[in-house]
Design a protein around this nucleic acid. Structure first.
Lengths: 206, 206
DNA sequence: TATATTAGACAGTACGGGTATCCAGTTGCC
DNA sequence: GGCAACTGGATACCCGTACTGTCTAATATA
């Protein structure tokens, strides 16, 4: 398959495919001559995955590359792949040393839940930041407010991991881990919003 | 309070405050002369909210303005405010007419849950898109796969709405609705990721 | 009156995510 | 073998977003 066919079958403009090749998101095709390369079904699949990560989820090109290379380097060790995927931040902001006032709250939350979570998990930052923001806005949120949410998150994670059990193929499993952890996120938020609308309607009549 | 004090107390650069004023995110101060305006605590509070929406959550300036004006126009009717807030999309893409194959799936899901959700809720699109993406990638996801997630989303929404009950002040309530629906989202995803890491560690040893 | 601020307008910047153009090399087909 | 059509790769360019810097006339402050 040449680039034009890849473009036609994926719906992605040729120029954009070249851009992804340049950026290292898509591995180069097998070169058959100086101006000719052969692309496979793997490329097509990868291309669709890239589009989903960038388009459906809002990952940046950099974040997408990091996730993809991490997954393909460690395919086989599901736990490790998950760890790498979980490290990906949707909106990359500069890495500050951390040490804010909210991080001890996160520790309390993690401890209360009995969770085993690495100390440098970006998710810790996110929660600390959110708590700090909420408080700077006057809301008296603490880690205790998040506890029931954490319990629901735990149940969600059980659902997630269940779906990874019934696959043996390591490549398949790695990709599925990606889909579950990263691609499902907008859908889960959307579910919550619909549930909120419904709950609000139920409580305040219509 | 003049702009420099507003800048100092909020930590936001003066030039950026002027930008928000220009963009209509921040209402203009009370003009005392041609080159003098007076800002209040309300401005400070609003400014912090803007920063949280743009910085912590990844809202665009446009989305932020829409949400803020919607909230301040309808403060008082919590259900309506919620509806307006829920309409805000994190990553604004152009509104296509919709009608994809996934939307009937969303209908099935909503019906099965017994939810009352408006037909034009953006969340429907998000779920339909996600389902279509997942399937184009070969995963055999259907609305049934999402059912248990929907149930957890319902429980989350109950938590959310509970927290809005114990406030009478309508302005306070509107702002709290904003915080809960919009600002809490990254934290909820972060909780899920930590729970996934923990669950993965528990299942596959360490 | 001298100095510092200020509001507001406008131009410029940095970055992300692509597009468009060009060109030499290659292929298919008569 | 000749020629149009296509290809891969490099470079330049474009557009939107979120600011940031500079300027100016008016005002405040000492």
């Amino acid at each position: 398959m040449r680039i034009s066919e890849l473009s036609r079958r994926s719906g992605v403009p040729g120029a954009t495919i070249k851009f992804y090749l340049r950026e290292g998101l898509l591995p180069p095709g097998r070169a058959t001559a100086a101006t000719q390369a052969e692309y496979s079904e793997v490329h097509l699949r990868r291309l669709r995955l890239i589009r989903a990560l960038i388009g459906v989820r809002g990952l940046t090109v950099n974040a997408t590359r990091e996730v993809l290379t991490a997954v393909s380097e460690h395919e086989g060790d599901l736990h490790q792949v998950l760890g790498l995927v979980l490290g990906a931040r949707p909106v990359n902001r500069e890495e500050e040393p951390q040490g804010g006032l909210g991080s001890s709250e996160v520790n309390a939350l993690v401890e209360q839940m009995g969770w085993q979570v690495s100390a440098h998990a970006p998710a810790r930052r996110v929660i600390a930041e959110t708590l700090e923001s909420l408080r700077s806005l006057g809301a008296d949120y603490s880690w205790r407010t998040l506890l029931p949410y954490a319990e629901l998150a735990r149940q969600t994670a059980v659902l997630d991991l269940d779906q990874l059990e019934d696959t043996d193929d390591s490549v398949e499993q790695a990709e599925r881990a990606l889909l579950l952890t990263v691609l499902l996120e907008p859908a889960l938020l959307a579910l919550r919003r619909m549930a909120q609308e419904n709950e609000s309607a139920a409580r305040h009549g219509d």
